[in-house]
Design a protein around this nucleic acid. Structure first.
Lengths: 340, 340
DNA sequence: TTGTACGCGTTATCAC
DNA sequence: GTGATAACGCGTACAA
């Protein structure tokens, strides 16, 4: 086992000073060609690599990005991570991923762990419990310390920082409008409780489409499910048993596939008897039967933008307090769960 | 903006020495009750938290685990990460995730980045390009430096380290056997090239089941697809056009859903005309139509075990060179793509 | 009971 | 052209 070699080791072996070695390795003009060659050859031979930790301590920069998300088994978050990784790695940053598992406490603990020097900035999406409580003190503390934060998807207006979202309201509006245009009138909305920022916006888009078309909304056609734990299949069953519905807009993939299966078991044909539109263009949607028309959220793009915003902030010397919110346009991907 | 406070700051404010502060905060017996209370109160007020980087440099321990995987949009890897996170966080470790995207070069670069002090050990699954090349020098270098490595799923025998896998051969054997027992004889295998360790083992299991039942294998019923890039839908189409098949075993979820859709489009009924068994108990399988019978790989469990093995090694003082390979039993999850 | 000094590995400044 | 020294933030053996 050949342990890592340090500047000190090289200096000792070559009988020069540590600073000479350091300079020689950076090809400093101060050092003679002779010494430089000797040092560089030795360093290469023993595969010298500077210790990241020491550099971090010195520079007060870790080149690590902390990513805190509610869950990783959701395809959307997975694509965002991929986008973050892509941009971050290309710029010499590593990504530390922490999962809050939709828990406020875990979110707080993870952030505290990372905030003590482990990372240069945060990219995060709020846990549903956090949004429910409306307690953002852990975010405030971090930003007050001067650590840059970029929020994506599940955001809050209580915190001044950069943000990236898709236009959720418009996405839902667009989807609902399409269903209305195709002659559907009994359009159900399956969503979560309103404390989730994205669900709220999507519900607004749904309402807006109805208003514009001068159609009354039947409130009983809006079903709100919990994001935590297992999907409440029984409530979905009840919902379809007690409501007449000819189209469904769902705020996520899971709700959609569950619902589609239930109505198919009732003998309904998709899309003829009942149309479906979901959110998130993930694998579940793509490979569903019939394949699902969705409002695509462009997770990877979102991740790249978030990473770019964060790294820009981290690397900008100036302490300007200007924050921006980037709003990406969602796209309607037409597949076979809607007509034509 | 209140910047992070250090021991030095506290010492200056309270007009004591840094070491006194340090000791006081650790409740050292050496320090008077008076001073301790004063220091602790001040620290709490200004929310003092020790700097992780400084501690890492001092202890030569980062409390970070490096995870290098080929892809994150595969549900299996996602569940493994979740298992790793779970165990690691519970033991005070953070997880740095790096994606090789199935590329040898990226795998090497990522490992080098992390190996220079950023992490205490690696958990990884090899990229397909790495397994294809059979070049494991980057792993050798790391282990020779004394950095513990745990390989999971896609492993190699060329490297001495801890490993976690499921018994892929047995999983495939079990699945094939079941199909044979149900009277299927024209069982296709859709797999990847043999350089992927897991695919190789699964192919062996498939063969073993046939041998045991004294049935000749029709080699044209084995389809090998590339893992890189987009799934070659055309080759799957051709395969089903030119082969008579009454059951299919696929080595991953994606291959399975693609194939299922193709045969359904040809008008075949699953499971009556043709049965399907896949690998990986992910969402695609669960929500497929019909829901898919699978060999479950227990990714989360695998992640937890890998994390446990790694942290044990990291925290054990002794330098014993004893490595173990944990083999998890796969489970057959029966759903509706096979008969009853 | 408190403080001094040193080391972790690196870099930057300044003196020789 | 080279080297000594200080500094990043912390912990600790040892001295006072």
């Amino acid at each position: 086992m050949k342990a890592k070699i340090t500047l000190k080791d090289i200096a000792r072996e070559l009988e020069v000073s540590i600073s000479t070695v350091s300079k020689a390795l950076k090809n400093s003009e101060e050092i003679s060609r002779d010494t430089k060659e000797k040092v560089q050859a030795f360093a290469k031979l023993y595969n010298y690599k500077p210790n990241n930790i020491a550099i971090s301590l010195k520079n007060k920069r870790t080149k690590n990005i902390g990513v805190v998300i509610p869950a990783i088994v959701h395809h959307f978050f997975t694509t965002v991570i991929r986008g973050i990784e892509k941009y971050a790695n290309a710029h010499g940053y590593n990504v530390i991923v922490c999962l809050s598992e939709e828990s406020f406490d875990k979110e707080v603990i993870n952030m505290e762990m990372l905030a003590n020097g482990s990372i240069d900035g945060f990219i995060m999406s709020l846990s549903s419990e956090t949004q429910q409580k409306g307690d953002y003190n852990h975010l405030k503390e971090v930003t007050e310390q001067g650590i840059p934060v970029v929020l994506f998807d599940r955001i809050t207006n209580e915190i001044d920082c950069d943000k990236v979202v898709i236009d959720d309201q418009f996405g839902a509006y667009m989807a609902t409008k399409k269903l209305i245009d195709q002659g559907r009138r009994k359009i159900a909305l399956i969503t979560t409780d309103d404390y989730l920022s994205v669900s709220k916006a999507r519900t607004e888009g749904y309402r807006k489409a109805f208003e514009e078309s001068d159609i009354e909304i039947n409130e009983s056609r809006i079903l709100k499910l919990s994001t935590m734990g297992i999907v409440d299949e029984e409530r979905i069953q009840e919902f379809f048993d007690s409501n007449e519905v000819d189209a469904v807009l769902c705020v996520n993939e899971i709700f959609t596939v569950y619902s589609m299966r239930l109505v198919q078991e009732k003998g309904l044909n998709i899309p003829n008897d009942i149309s479906f539109i979901g959110f998130t263009d993930g694998k579940l949607s793509k490979y569903a039967n019939p394949s699902l028309t969705v409002v695509a959220q462009h997770g990877e793009k979102m991740g790249e933008i978030a990473a770019q915003m964060l790294i820009d902030k981290v690397e900008s010397e100036k302490e300007e307090e200007s924050f921006q919110t980037k709003i990406l346009e969602p796209t309607l991907v037409i597949r076979n769960s809607t007509i034509n």
